[in-house]
Design a protein around this nucleic acid. Structure first.
Length: 643
RNA sequence: GCUGACGUAGCUCAGUGGUAGAGCACAUCCUUGGUAAGGAUGAGGUCACGGGUUCAAGUCCCGUCGUCAGCUCCA
């Protein structure tokens, strides 16, 4: 038979030759590194006999799928070790994920971090036995019999469609697991691994089900790769916004105020206002109208919108005064207030689009386990706008909103965000409004996304209850995905709030509402921004832009003059008058990640100059003060990112 | 909300039943210096909070609050 390799070359082998044997015939090294193969594009074990002319890929750890298989097999190895240590163990699922693998299981012992060492040691023992992963296929009936007594596997097997799916199991030594495969040839292939964390997870992701235990881990064929990976994890922790937020004095969270209720410190507020002003300027150019609305509102507004009944559990309870029949709600979103502004006078088709914008603080009672630094909180400001548009304006307006969000992200250096179109999922009752309007909205959103060349993924079932949306997602330092910007089309609220305008025909018409927020939540956006820059903010955002460091107290007068000049030029400056040596002060301002230090001593006084030191770069030499001011002003006004 | 871990000085952390510690930061003094830590002295604690066991609790047990990882949720 003829085997075609990825480079297009062909080789002839006897029928029944396995991918591993092919690899051996090509090179010893390839055979050693081979993990799994693709025969005619289908992933197969290395020992699968090939029966006819085929194309063949031999995959190593350099291939994504090779890594995937490596991690998947490691998860089986871990399950095997758990089964040997805890014979009562029953197993859920154990897939490979982006960076490693996990396995869910049910055992009588509550595992702690120390137990992971024990499991790791058992895994080493099993890899030393170098047992082969052996595949076999069986009928549904046989499979049910084999996993008799394991309700999780039984449930998985029962879901199999025997007509179209093959049920397979993999065994290594005395451990057998239900699995579609493929796997590595043997446990000995798995060299270096680390179990990272243990936690709970609901069976099949449903909180009504029993909670299993889950162990996450990662593995590599070379020791250096594991070490590098663990080092990257450590590096990532240094970027953690909760750590940097404290070190750089940006925000403070204390249970004395309340969980998830961040306090913005002076330096964090400078950063926050810089972002707000940036967006305000952009919105002014794009003809948005700023508005301001209260932090609470009559509960009827939210009953009418449908938010109150739908999200009752994640809202702070209503506020009620004795002797007053009215109930008020801390506003969980800004839309109803903005709708009232729209309705405050009759609107003509000539007025549309109307774009009302507000940095509106909203309050949501997020589940305690969900709170996370400043990225998931109970009080946050949305850079909200509600845009009231005619049908014929919708697509243009969507495009202009996407353009704004792209501009914001680009200015802040977010290059690798992903976009998700969230559509409805069938007939679920939770969705409000007519189905035809949904279909129309989804089409419009997709057309706008295509026009604006967004690289998107469509997620069915992720829509808001009132309409489909586009979400802009960015990953944090630890690889967790967060939604930042969002654009949502809404035909439902205009109905519920009876919004209208008078058309050219003199008749009443309904506007369409677009909800949009480029940052999403200011709190979350800043959290991600901190991690994105690792605290080394571009100068226009840096809370302190310049630190003046005199060489000794003899030069304080000159330093004071420099400080005044910078303040006059509207630059955020600190003058370090502490009684310390210069090296000490430089270290301090470096750790504070201040973009520029100006060192002034005898030389500078004599030549009427400043010595410039750039954060993370070092001494840039002396220059005239005016020259420095011109350069930094340019850097600030152009929002230059030079990290 | 669930499972597990954790909570000691402003920060990072040591302290496994017997008189609360270190480094950094802070204050005072000496020192007046040239690109990442000069020296001395000092102040700083309801060991998260509440209860219990014990002659004795930072330490053991229970509860509450909070933090962290993951799950679930996310207008």
């Amino acid at each position: 038979m003829i085997i075609t390799l990825p480079d297009g070359s062909t080789r002839e082998y006897e029928v029944g030759t396995s991918p591993l044997q092919v690899a051996e015939s090509i090179s010893g090294r390839l055979a050693k590194e081979a993990l799994v193969s693709r025969i005619n594009g289908v992933a197969k074990d290395l020992n699968t006999p090939i029966r006819s002319d085929s194309s063949l890929e031999i995959l190593t750890f350099n291939d994504e799928y090779g890594q995937h298989t490596y991690w998947h097999s490691t998860s089986h190895l871990m399950a095997h070790a758990i089964k040997e240590l805890y014979p009562e163990a029953k197993f859920g699922v154990g897939p490979a994920i982006d960076n490693g693998f996990y396995y869910d299981f049910d055992i009588n012992t509550k595992l702690s971090l120390e137990d992971l060492d024990k499991i790791e040691k058992k895994m080493v023992e099993i890899t030393n036995r170098d047992e082969q992963f052996k595949r076999s296929e069986l009928s549904k009936k046989e499979a049910l019999a084999l996993f008799n007594g394991d309700e999780y596997k039984n449930e998985l097997i029962s879901d199999f469609d025997e007509e179209n799916e093959i049920i397979s199991i993999y065994g290594e030594g005395n451990f057998t697991d239900l699995c579609t495969g493929p796997h590595l040839p043997s446990t000995g292939k798995i060299k270096y691994f680390k179990l990272l964390s243990v936690s709970g997870s609901y069976w099949r992701g449903d909180e009504k089900n029993k909670q299993l235990q889950r162990i996450y881990g990662v593995s590599f064929p070379k020791k250096k790769m594991l070490e590098d990976y663990l080092e990257r994890l450590e590096e990532a922790k240094k970027r953690d916004h909760r750590k940097l937020g404290k070190e750089l004095e940006l925000f403070h969270i204390t249970h004395e105020v309340g969980a998830g209720l961040p306090l913005w410190l002076p330096k964090g507020t400078i950063l926050r206002e810089a972002l707000e002003n940036f967006l305000r300027e952009e919105q002014k150019k794009r003809e948005y109208q700023p508005v301001v609305t209260p932090h609470i509102g009559n509960i009827n507004l939210y009953k009418r919108s449908g938010h109150y009944p739908y999200y009752k559990d994640s809202q702070f309870p209503p506020i009620k005064f004795e002797g007053d029949d009215e109930e008020y709600l801390l506003k969980p979103m800004n839309c109803p207030h903005h709708f009232q502004i729209y309705s405050s006078k009759p609107r003509s088709y000539r007025d549309l689009p109307i774009r009302l914008a507000e940095f509106g603080t909203v309050y949501r009672y997020e589940q305690s386990g969900e709170l996370n630094g400043v990225t998931r909180v109970r009080s946050f400001a949305v850079d909200d706008s509600h845009m009231f548009v005619r049908d014929d304006q919708l697509k243009d307006e969507l495009c202009s909103v996407i353009d704004l969000i792209q501009y914001v992200f680009k200015t802040l250096g977010f290059e690798d965000f992903v976009t998700q179109l969230s559509f409805r999922d069938g007939d679920d009752e939770k969705y409000g409004g007519a189905k035809e309007l949904w279909a129309k909205a989804q089409t419009e959103i997709k057309e706008a996304a295509d026009l604006m060349k967004l690289n998107y993924k469509i997620e069915e079932g992720e829509a808001a209850f009132y309409g489909p949306k586009i979400d802009f997602m960015v990953k944090d330092a630890l690889g967790r995905k967060w939604q930042l910007g969002t654009v949502q089309i809404d035909y439902v609220m205009p109905e519920r709030f009876d919004l209208e305008y008078t058309g050219a025909d003199g008749q009443k018409h309904r506007p369409v509402v677009i909800h949009r927020a480029p940052f999403g939540s200011l709190e979350r956006f800043i959290g991600i921004l901190i991690e994105h820059f690792g605290g080394d903010f571009p100068t226009w955002l840096a809370p302190i832009q310049v630190a003046i460091v005199p060489v000794s107290q003899n030069f304080f007068d000159y330093a004071e003059k420099i400080k005044q000049a910078l303040k006059d030029a509207d630059i955020r400056v600190e003058f370090d008058t502490r009684n310390e040596k210069i090296g000490y002060k430089i270290r301090h301002w470096e750790t504070q990640k201040v973009p520029y230090m100006l060192i002034v001593g005898e030389k500078e006084v004599d030549s009427n100059s400043v010595s410039v030191r750039r954060h993370k770069v070092g001494d840039k030499g002396a220059m005239a003060l005016d020259e420095f001011i011109a350069e930094i002003k340019n850097e600030i006004s152009n929002k230059i990112i030079n990290n």
